[in-house]
Simulated scan of single mutants.
Amino acid sequence: MNTLIFRTLAPVIVGIMLVFSVYVCLRGHNEPGGGFIGGLIAASAIAVYAMAVGVPAVREALRFEPTAFAGFGVFIAAGSGLLSLGTGSPFLTSIWLYLNLGDTVVPLSTPMIFDIGVYFVVFGTISAVALALQGDEGEEP
Rank of each mutant, 00 (worst) to 15 (best):
M1S: 15
N2P: 11
T3N: 09
T3Y: 10
L4W: 03
L4I: 08
L4E: 14
L4C: 14
I5P: 04
I5W: 05
F6S: 13
F6A: 09
T8F: 03
L9H: 05
L9I: 08
G15F: 02
G15P: 00
G15L: 03
I16N: 12
M17F: 03
V22L: 15
C25F: 13
R27K: 14
R27H: 05
G28W: 04
E31L: 08
P32A: 04
G34W: 00
G35M: 08
F36P: 13
G38D: 00
G38Q: 00
I41R: 04
I41G: 07
A42Y: 04
A45C: 06
I46M: 08
I46G: 00
A47S: 14
Y49G: 08
A50S: 11
A50N: 01
M51R: 14
A52C: 05
G54T: 08
G54I: 08
A57Y: 02
A57V: 10
V58A: 09
R59W: 13
A61F: 13
L62M: 02
R63N: 06
P66V: 05
F69V: 14
G71C: 10
G71Q: 01
F72R: 03
F72Y: 06
F72S: 08
V74L: 07
A78S: 11
G79R: 03
G81H: 06
G81T: 00
L82I: 14
S84H: 10
G86C: 13
T87F: 07
S89I: 13
S89Q: 15
F91H: 08
L92N: 08
L92C: 05
L92I: 06
W96F: 14
L97I: 12
L97K: 05
L97Q: 12
Y98T: 11
N100C: 05
N100M: 11
L101N: 13
L101W: 15
D103Q: 15
D103R: 14
T104A: 13
V105I: 14
S109N: 08
S109Y: 01
I113S: 09
I113P: 09
I116W: 01
I116F: 11
I116Q: 06
V118H: 02
Y119E: 05
Y119C: 15
V121S: 13
F123A: 11
T125F: 00
I126H: 01
S127Q: 01
S127H: 06
A128E: 12
L133N: 10
L133R: 07
G135K: 04
G135Q: 04
E139D: 15
E140W: 12
E140R: 14
